[in-house]
Design a protein around this nucleic acid. Structure first.
Lengths: 198, 198, 198, 198
DNA sequence: GATGAATGAGGTTTCATTCAT
DNA sequence: GATGAATGAAACCTCATTCAT
């Protein structure tokens, strides 16, 4: 009895997800250049050919990780936030959610947040092809500027404050990844907020 | 009659320094894996052979950059700080010096600070051979713990606060490098201190 | 539908054997250091990459030649000898077989015997990884010592006699290789035995 | 007071000899291809330039070792032999001298004999440029043929017997080099003669 | 006579990518 | 849908040789 279309679809998706998950893991742990596809095939228990069957190459794999695992995850986080309130509350909420994700048992949360920030802040990475421009950076910047206009945040370069906050989160995600959730003691969002308040 | 020892010594040192400076620049800008020796030879205007005359390979070049340019620079910074005062003043002084270095016209300051933190915080880098264990991380940690005992800093994981502070500095160095000193507006050290105070 | 496991296995083995045969030939004719992988790829009609697909490097290729072509061949020779008889008959038999192999039309016999003796007698070669310690040297030594105890062989250093006999065989294999089987007139084993008898 | 011509001449010769001795040592121990001039400069405590001052390159260095250290030494050995006697006595004498040299305390004797035979029997070495064609091989061959005509030696390929005898000596020199003179027990020349006698 | 810095051709090794099945 | 053998360009590295002094 031949498989149904749905069954094929499912097999397909499962394999793709295994590859993406593996790639996420390796790209976070070793960095884009240090990852080679051999490592991916070994960890994902698939052939080289299969990766090229689903992705057009190494960069496409990276971009697909960003587009399929990372960005939706970030969007999901943003979706839960009410942007109508005052900027300081928005940011507080955001920090709360993110920190909660980071300190969770599952490593993947931290990986995604780390990779997202790494991609959009650090690397001279070809995210040219990424479907969307870094929403969080812009949003954070705008929020901080709104907070400044609303009189809650201290003046000075908003870009700077943005970098500060995001670098901090990235640093925390990084530590979370490397020391494990048991030893990781997550700072309270209020500590970070202190940097912003007048 | 051969060149004198001093002449050879001088030639050696000059070339080694050019190579190290070039390598510092490239390692910071592109990351260890993305740098290839061809780029180094072109920028340093030397042959492949010469790099291997002075360094045993790419890793040794990286480690030499750390040991010869970065660590001495960090030590120099630390040497200017009085560690006798209360922890909160020590850290304030440290942040002041570092931020001042980062916002200076000369890119190299920011590079060195960035590479130092990157090497000692982020990468699974083979700095096994590095002559000394990351003094700044330990020192920062101890200082923050002292500050906590002295009742000035808020309680919680000292490791966490350390990571916060250092990640922040790294993030700032990073931005400084990428947007240039003209557009870079450096935050005041007091903003960062806010995170630590009770 | 991918190729079956058997198909892959067969392709693998065929290519590996071509490479090993080529390498055997070149290592014998030119010596380890003088062989470069370019020569191997040209003679084996394969890419550089393929050699590294099957072997971890030049040394591994050499060691694989020894382990896969040479040692099994030597074992096969030894397997045909009855070691129960008096030592002088054993050695006589051994010499007979080896000399017969050497003077055969097929060059490979002589190559393997030569390479075996060369590896285990001459070079400061890294045959550390070779699966087994030189059985023939030990066996020859023990046999000669047995022959001495049995009163057939002249006294003196057994090591010396061993070296004499093995060096001789190597020398003969060498000449056989270089002058070709047509011009090669193989000495009778009795001539060599004369050295051993009282 | 400037140095006299003789003094310069002497310095010159001393340096050349150190280089040649070092090269002899290394070429014997590691083989032509595995030796690199860096090793020579280090062991001879001289600069790269100096080697090129006295020799035109690596091959010239090798050939010079053969021509200046090895061939004269072999000639000296031959000069002490009376070729007027019956062939069997000549060969016996020759073997006696060579074996005596090999078992002497000084390694250099064995090195020279080994290198001589290695160069002239084994390697596809560019001894094209060597001033003389291997005298010992021809002489040995002629002697053995004479011995055959004189009715003392067994018939069969004279080339073969020559190879046998010379390979044996080389093998002995090799062992002598590698196990040291203390543990080396040299076979008596009569053992080797046994191979030749009817 | 002597030095050792410097070169560059050629070797070894890695890895993204292709392809027949 | 899937395999892994095979490729080759580009990386890393070595070493005989040159050269200014």
């Amino acid at each position: 009895m031949p498989k149904t279309k749905e069954q094929f679809e499912q097999i397909r998706n499962e394999r793709i997800n295994v590859i993406l998950d593996t790639a996420l893991h390796l790209f976070v742990m070793e960095g884009y250049d240090a990852v080679n596809l051999d490592k991916v095939t070994k960890e994902a228990k698939c052939s080289h050919g299969l990766i090229y069957h689903y992705f057009s190459g190494k960069d496409d794999l990276y971009i697909s990780v960003i587009n399929n695992l990372v960005i939706p995850y970030i969007k999901e986080i943003l979706a839960g936030i009410s942007f109508e309130q005052k900027a300081k509350f928005v940011i507080h909420d955001l920090l709360d959610v993110i920190l909660k994700k980071i300190k969770a048992v599952d490593d993947k949360n931290a990986w995604k947040i780390y990779l997202f920030l790494n991609t959009h802040l650090q690397k001279n990475l070809f995210v040219k092809n990424s479907k969307e421009k870094t929403p969080i950076f812009q949003k954070t910047l705008e929020l901080i500027e709104r907070g400044q206009r609303e009189g809650d945040f201290n003046d000075g370069s908003s870009t700077e404050l943005t970098i500060c906050v995001l670098s901090l989160i990235k640093g925390l995600a990084f530590t979370r990844i490397h020391i494990g959730y048991k030893r990781f003691i997550c700072p309270n969002s209020s500590i970070i907020m202190k940097m912003l308040y007048k």
